[in-house]
Computed example of a mutant assay.
Amino acid sequence: MSLDQPAARQSDHPVAPQFLQRWSPRSFTDRALSEAEVMSLLEAARWAPSASNHQPWRFVWARRGEAVFEALHACLTGNNLTWAGKGAALVVVASKDTVTNREGAEVANRTAGFDTGAAWMSLALQAQTMGLFAHAMGGFDREKLAAAVRLPEGHTLHCVVAVGEQGPAEALPEDLAAREKPSSRKPVAEIAMHGRF
């Protein structure tokens, strides 16, 4: 089995190897995850930075073989339906939209999505340290997924993450196998400006 590795990725400036090695493959092996392994992923997400320590992120998870895994998988759309069912676990990432202010009123949490993105990255990097990969997907039926996880009012769905051990590209349909390699990124000069846009 030949697994594509992100060795060809090159940074423009020095960074820790974990940032170049993290990517989102679609092919997974049959390796199962224990509940303890899933808890390690969620524990890492728990410690993400959070504005005013509100911690708005919320997760619903299931392991392959569980009925709820099948229910979550059925909410995916497009090519995600083809490959994500091989993941060892699916994790739904959502956030609580409001916070309780000092006066005791529920008000909009402007940084909920930002903070939840940090929690997702913590989960992805923890997966990497465990020899796993995490692939976040935005392709899902929002109404169907909200019903499947019984999403409370005042919460927003962000993505579904497939987690597992990387499998061979050859296990994917031909069109997806051709895309099964780490992608590059825009140069820093294109995304960061000194002082102003």
Rank of each mutant, 00 (worst) to 15 (best):
T77G: 04
G78Y: 01
N79T: 08
N80I: 07
L81W: 01
T82K: 05
T82S: 12
W83G: 03
W83Y: 13
A84R: 01
G85P: 08
G85F: 08
G85H: 07
G85Q: 06
G85I: 09
K86T: 13
G87E: 04
A89L: 08
A89D: 05
L90V: 00
V92L: 02
V92P: 00
V92G: 02
V92K: 01
V93N: 07
V93H: 06
V93I: 14
A94Y: 04
S95T: 10
S95Q: 12
D97C: 12
T98L: 00
T100K: 14
N101I: 11
N101Q: 12
N101W: 10
N101M: 11
R102E: 15
E103C: 00
G104F: 14
A105Q: 14
E106D: 13
V107T: 14
A108W: 10
N109P: 00
R110Y: 05
R110H: 11
T111W: 14
T111D: 09
T111M: 13
A112N: 12
G113M: 12
F114V: 14
F114G: 01
D115A: 11
T116Q: 07
T116S: 14
T116W: 03
G117P: 02
A118L: 08
A119N: 01
W120N: 00
W120Q: 12
W120M: 11
W120F: 09
S122L: 06
S122R: 03
L123P: 11
L123S: 12
L123N: 10
L123C: 13
A124E: 08
Q126N: 08
Q128I: 00
T129C: 00
G131C: 05
G131H: 07
G131F: 04
G131I: 03
L132F: 07
L132I: 10
L132D: 03
F133K: 08
F133T: 11
A134M: 07
A134V: 05
A136P: 15
G138R: 08
G138T: 02
G139L: 05
F140T: 02
F140Q: 00
D141E: 10
K144V: 04
A146H: 04
A148W: 02
A148F: 04
A148L: 05
V149A: 01
R150S: 15
L151I: 04
L151E: 00
G154V: 08
H155R: 09
H158K: 09
H158Y: 12
C159I: 01
V160E: 03
V160R: 02
V161T: 14
A162R: 07
A162P: 07
E165Q: 15
E165Y: 05
A169W: 02
E170Q: 14
A171N: 13
A171L: 09
L172S: 09
L172E: 05
E174H: 13
E174V: 15
D175W: 06
L176D: 09
A177D: 10
A177P: 08
